[in-house]
Design a protein around this nucleic acid. Structure first.
Lengths: 391, 391
DNA sequence: TTGTACGCGTTATCAC
DNA sequence: GTGATAACGCGTACAA
């Protein structure tokens, strides 16, 4: 691969694929000859015949400058090809980078494909961008020795947001906290000193379970999001449940169990349609049911994405939804391709969640104490739940 | 919304929602009392009884340091709660921020939901992270006066990648180039001085069209991705085509027209399933066809996401795929929920594209000239294309 | 192997 | 409204 097939406009010499050994990209940049170095604010000031401080004010607008002076400075800048103050130097001086790190699930590929994540991230980015803050994307990682983890240590960040949950024992979290960087987490990790934004997962899930009970369902299976980040897939046993899981996953399961006793709890390795589908096959394929006490008549999935996979699997298994199996999701995202089905689901206020996250970040940046916000969810009844068979 | 409903572990005072007026988050951080300020490398050096330069070497490993000395330094650091060199100061000194800006389509929400984009981004992030480079997410924007656009001017970046295409006349592009920041673009903008990574859109699309011709199709409609970023939707007329469009969009259309003359060219406002669906309704609903010369028997969509929407619409219109209408996509992403259909599509080597992008970035960072790479695509025949009706 | 000296480019503070 | 000065915290020639 990487064949050059098309027209090559620029000198391809040394292009991709790269030569054997290249210097590290963050190696120091060679000191350029005096003649070619980029102009600095001091150069501009000199050219405009003002002091560096005045030139600085002309750009930042942080103090009074005569209009004529400012014009002169800007003109000088244009003349020298000066594109504005150096961000790094400004950051050093101000003590702020203007950057917020956002941690998202290990494989971006999977994380982004969840409309909930995409929408949430969109909202967070939007809100923070509106405040002049840029977003640094931090892939979640176990392995603190790898190069990617280096960023947790060495990237300039004013705050870090754990956007898709995190475990209290995440080593990356420790690194960030040791640096003294404020942490805001969405649905976890719930640790002292971190601001927390979440929805009422437990109550919502209980309502979903009660909805099914009211419809006469007695055999309910739960399909969960990943409990931890280790790729485990299959029945979620008590041994594993004793390990601390992701907060949302844990709370949603607890909510269901507040109302009923599931006949099966199946964990997915990833929050993806395909895994929901596989989970449903595991739980619904056998007419005798996973526990030998009959096939579940309802499935509570911990996300809409997983629920969609369950609905799809039902089609493949020849099970009618909701005639044979009722399906409930969580998130309330739009899944246009699920038509004509409309998922019964717990709608979270994603936009509010994003806004609350941005506010939490701004609060910490402003010197405020960590905050803790819980937003409500509500059950939206769609077409995927109905009376239990035979009722 | 934003009601505090759950338990509030931390002092909620002044939390979210925020009080009326907060200071800008990138305002200078108040000078802390001498006693509480975070320790610096100099402090650590003093505590360890070595010079600052030695302490620096102990952390960076950029020079020889006696093991015992290093231990002493690290111990002193631990004792002082020093978490490592300040990233901003290090960046200033090195002249490199270790950050690469990545520009993605205007609404992240939509962009991320395209599996092609998610996979591409995943690959780019992965490859760059492996080189110690972090990713700054830059939402594409028209409006250079808004706060989000400020980032193009003021964020510290060693390079910028336009990941989802860009227009040569994008003002944000101009800002970045004026700063002297190297640009790498994927499928455009194709401008002098920028490295370009793309696939052979035109040839691929021609092959798709030829595939349909070979199957006997005579009335072929094209459903395009957005031509420009202005939310336009509907027939892509010649007036609009005279405006410069996104490179991939333009090339894919040209490729089809190299082989045949479409009976309709319908532009979508966004590269989303829902818009593909709407486009298909517009083009296929009328049995007389959009041009009055009969309903198209095939649709070439410029992305798999759009193609999926077309397939869905066919179901809604009671048209069999491929019995009544054949559908071709572009990208070769997996769309598990499209089962039992398997899209006929042009498969792009997304992973190679990501790798090539990372290489292009590294090349520029290493002082290399801009490069230009074109990767091949290949037609993968699925179950959504078949002989034209009546053949 | 370690220390000295300097500069990276900017901005806050204060005096004028 | 403008200018001088002093950091911001660190990396790196170079000398010792």
């Amino acid at each position: 691969m990487l064949r050059q097939t098309g027209p090559v406009a620029n000198p391809p010499a040394g292009g991709c694929p790269p030569t054997t050994r290249r210097p590290s990209p963050i190696a120091p940049v060679p000191r350029p000859a005096r003649a070619t170095r980029r102009p600095t604010l001091a150069d501009v000031a000199a050219a405009a015949g003002v002091s560096a401080s005045t030139a600085s004010l002309a750009f930042s607008g942080a103090g009074p400058v005569a209009v004529a002076t400012r014009e002169r400075v800007l003109a000088a800048a244009r003349g020298l090809g000066y594109a504005g103050p150096d961000p790094t130097a400004a950051s050093l001086r101000r003590g702020r980078s203007g950057v917020v790190g956002v941690v998202v699930g290990e494989r971006l590929r999977d994380a982004f494909r969840d409309p909930y994540v995409a929408t949430l991230l969109d909202g967070v980015v939007d809100a923070l961008a509106g405040e002049g803050l840029a977003i640094l994307l931090l892939p979640m990682t176990h392995d603190l020795s790898g190069a990617p983890a280096e960023q947790y240590r060495t990237a300039a960040m004013d705050a870090v947001v754990f956007a898709t949950g995190g475990l209290p024992d995440d080593p990356a979290l420790a690194v960030v906290r040791d640096r003294g960087v404020p942490v805001v987490s969405i649905e976890g990790p719930d640790v002292p000193g971190a601001s927390l934004v979440r929805v009422d997962d437990r109550t919502g899930s209980r309502e979903a379970a009660e909805h099914l009970l009211a419809l006469g369902h007695e055999r309910v299976a739960v399909v969960t999001m990943p409990w931890r980040l280790d790729g485990h897939e299959g029945a979620l046993g008590s041994r594993r449940r004793r390990l601390r899981g992701f907060a949302d996953c844990t709370a949603r399961l607890a909510g269901v169990e507040d109302a009923l006793r599931p006949v099966a709890v199946h964990e997915c390795a990833t929050n993806a349609v395909e895994h929901g589908r596989r989970a449903a096959h595991a739980v619904l394929a056998d007419p005798a049911g996973p526990a030998g006490r009959g096939r579940p008549t309802a499935v509570v999935a911990q996300s809409d994405v997983l629920a969609a996979g369950v609905v799809q699997a039902c089609g493949e298994l020849g099970l009618a939804v909701p005639g044979d199996v009722s399906v409930v999701g969580f998130d309330g995202v739009d899944l246009p391709w699920l038509r004509p089905h409309a998922l019964t689901t717990l709608v979270q206020p994603v936009a509010d969640k994003a806004r609350a996250t941005a506010d939490a970040v701004l609060g910490r940046l402003g010197g405020g104490e960590p905050t803790d916000v819980t937003l409500p969810v509500h059950l939206r009844t769609g077409t995927t739940t109905g009376p239990a068979p035979g009722r």
